[in-house]
Nucleic acid binder design. Structure first.
Length: 268
DNA sequence: TTCCAGGTGGCAT
DNA sequence: ATGCCACATGGA
C-alpha cells in the first residue's frame, strides 16, 4: 500500500465531500472512507488538517480532491453575491467537487434518473462487482473497479437483469457503444451537445456529468430538489428562469452553489 | 396500495 | 416549442 499525506488541507470535510451526492462508491467505516478510484483501492482519513490516503496504486490525489482550488474564495464570493446562500455554505463548508472519471460519472448519472441515492449506489456496486476487476480485499470484503466502456459495450440487456437497472440497462449498453474517451469538445456547449446525443441523457444528467466528470464548474443541474429550493428561496419556477438566475447570480461558480444548496436542503 | 426517487424519450398538441 | 405519460425497482 502506498501512503500519501496531504498536510495543511483547508476547506475539506470528508462527510461533506463524499455524502453531498456527487459520488456513489465511497463507504464509511468509523472515521475512514473506503473506495475505488480509477482502479485504485483507497482508505482515506482526515485529522488535524492532514489528509491521509492509503492506496493500492498511484493516483493524483491532489487533483482528485481538487486541493489546488481555493474553496474559501469560492464561498466568500458566493456569500457576497447572495447572502441567503450563507446557511448552506456554512453547513457544507468542507464540500469539494471531486475530479472523477468521466465514464463512471456518465453511467452513474444515467442510473440516477428517477431513482434514489441508496438504490443508485447499489446498482453501481453490483455493476462493478459483476463486470469490474477485483482490485483488493479488505476485512473480508472484495473491492472492484468500475467496468470500462468496452466491457459493457459487449453486453446484452439480459446480462444486466440481475443488476436491477430497470429500463436504464439499455441506455447504459448503448452509451458504452457510443462512448469515446478521446473527444474534441472544447467548450461547455459542445460538450453538452455531445452528452445530449446519448439516449437516456437529458439536460439534468448532462449537467451533472459536465460538473462532476468534465470540470465545467458553471454547470447547474436542476433536479427535483433544486426546483424546490429555487421556489422556496427565490420564488422561481421553470428551468429557464432558474438557469438565467443561476448564471446571473453565481456565474462561473454555479456548480459549486448548486452543490452547497443541494446538500444542505437534502440533509435538512 | 399508492407515492416517490439527483428524469428522459416518445408522442400528441 | 410545450405538455403529458410510461418507464423498472424498492422503500416508505
Amino acid at each position: 500500500m502506498l501512503n500519501t499525506l496531504m498536510t495543511d488541507v483547508k476547506d475539506i470535510n470528508l462527510d461533506h465531500v463524499f455524502q453531498c451526492g456527487q459520488c456513489f462508491r465511497w463507504s464509511k467505516i468509523d472515521d475512514t472512507y473506503i473506495g475505488v478510484v480509477q482502479g485504485v483501492f483507497a482508505k482515506v482519513t482526515l485529522k488535524d488538517n492532514i489528509l491521509n490516503i492509503e492506496a493500492t496504486g498511484e493516483l493524483n490525489w491532489n487533483e482528485y480532491f481538487d486541493l489546488n482550488r481555493d474553496y474559501g474564495e469560492i464561498k466568500a464570493t458566493l456569500s457576497k453575491s447572495e447572502s441567503s446562500m450563507r446557511e448552506s455554505l456554512k453547513y457544507g463548508y468542507g464540500m469539494r467537487i471531486l475530479n472523477q472519471d468521466l465514464w463512471e460519472v456518465l453511467v452513474s448519472f444515467i442510473i440516477s434518473q428517477n431513482n434514489n441515492i441508496p438504490r443508485i449506489k447499489g446498482c453501481v456496486e453490483k455493476l462493478s462487482k459483476k463486470y469490474g476487476n477485483e482490485v483488493y480485499e479488505y476485512e473480508d470484503k472484495k473491492y472492484y473497479s468500475f467496468p470500462d466502456a468496452n466491457i459493457l459495450a459487449k453486453l446484452d440487456v439480459t446480462d444486466l437483469e440481475d443488476i436491477k437497472l430497470g429500463y436504464r440497462a439499455k441506455y447504459i449498453i448503448d452509451a458504452a457503444k457510443q462512448f469515446q474517451n478521446d473527444r474534441k469538445e472544447s467548450d461547455i456547449d459542445q460538450a453538452t451537445n455531445w452528452l445530449l446525443s446519448f439516449n437516456g441523457i437529458g439536460p439534468k444528467v448532462a449537467n451533472c456529468i459536465l460538473l462532476f466528470g468534465m470540470g465545467y464548474y458553471n454547470a447547474f443541474p436542476i433536479d427535483v430538489w433544486v426546483k424546490r429550493i429555487m421556489k422556496e428561496m427565490f420564488g422561481l419556477e421553470g428551468d429557464k428562469s432558474i438557469n438565467e438566475f443561476a448564471k446571473m447570480k453565481f456565474g462561473e461558480y454555479g456548480g459549486f452553489a448548486q452543490q452547497y444548496l443541494f446538500y444542505y436542503f437534502r440533509e435538512k
